[in-house]
Computed example of a mutant assay.
Amino acid sequence: MQSEFPLLLPPVILPDTPIQQVAPAALAYLGDAVYELYIRRAYLMPPKRLQAYHNQVVAQVRAERQADHLRSLLPLLTEPELEILKRGRNAATGHPKRVELNVYQQATSLETLIGYLYLTDLQRLAHLLAQLELEPSA
């Protein structure tokens, strides 16, 4: 897997908006999109039917799989990144219907971290995403 994001546009954030003022839910919203695009790109080759793409991507973007990915990355994270995870976990309110609350919080934490790193450090984001153990492409 490449460690860069050639297909992603450079992040845009207003220079006078400190990243600490961006709500964790907004970071998770952005992180969810970045994560899904990363996963979609990872399964693009070899060519296959759309349903096969969909099935592989859905298996990776499910909250349970995101929680697994987060647990695998924890030993690699810095203190500031762990703080971002806490912000994301605390922002994960509501009552998910399909998964347990702790799994939902872990998935939201991962998305928050991805959104944060997308806005602040693309190299670090690429490094961490490259560490994810994705299921082999069928």
Rank of each mutant, 00 (worst) to 15 (best):
N102S: 15
H95L: 11
R98K: 06
A67W: 01
L110F: 03
L129E: 10
E83F: 05
R87F: 05
Q56F: 12
E100T: 03
P11I: 05
P10F: 03
V57M: 02
Q51P: 05
Y104W: 15
V57L: 01
A126W: 00
T120V: 12
Q2N: 15
Q56A: 15
Q106W: 00
V99F: 02
A138Y: 04
L122Q: 04
L27A: 07
H54C: 10
P96F: 04
L129F: 09
Q106N: 10
S137R: 08
A63W: 05
A130W: 00
Y38W: 15
L132F: 00
A23F: 11
L113R: 07
L9I: 09
R124W: 00
L9P: 05
Q106H: 08
L122G: 02
M1P: 12
E100N: 03
S109Q: 09
T78V: 01
Y35Q: 13
S3T: 04
R41F: 07
G94N: 04
L73P: 10
T17M: 15
V58R: 15
T112P: 09
E133Q: 14
E133N: 13
T120D: 02
S137G: 03
P80I: 04
A23V: 11
R41M: 06
Q123H: 06
L129Y: 07
Y29E: 11
S72A: 15
Y38S: 15
S3H: 02
L70I: 05
I84A: 06
M1A: 15
V99C: 01
Y104Q: 09
Q56I: 08
Y43G: 03
L113N: 09
L7A: 14
R65Y: 00
P80D: 05
I114C: 12
N90L: 13
L125A: 06
D16C: 11
Q21R: 08
A107Y: 04
A126N: 00
L27H: 12
L119S: 03
P80T: 01
L44D: 14
V12N: 06
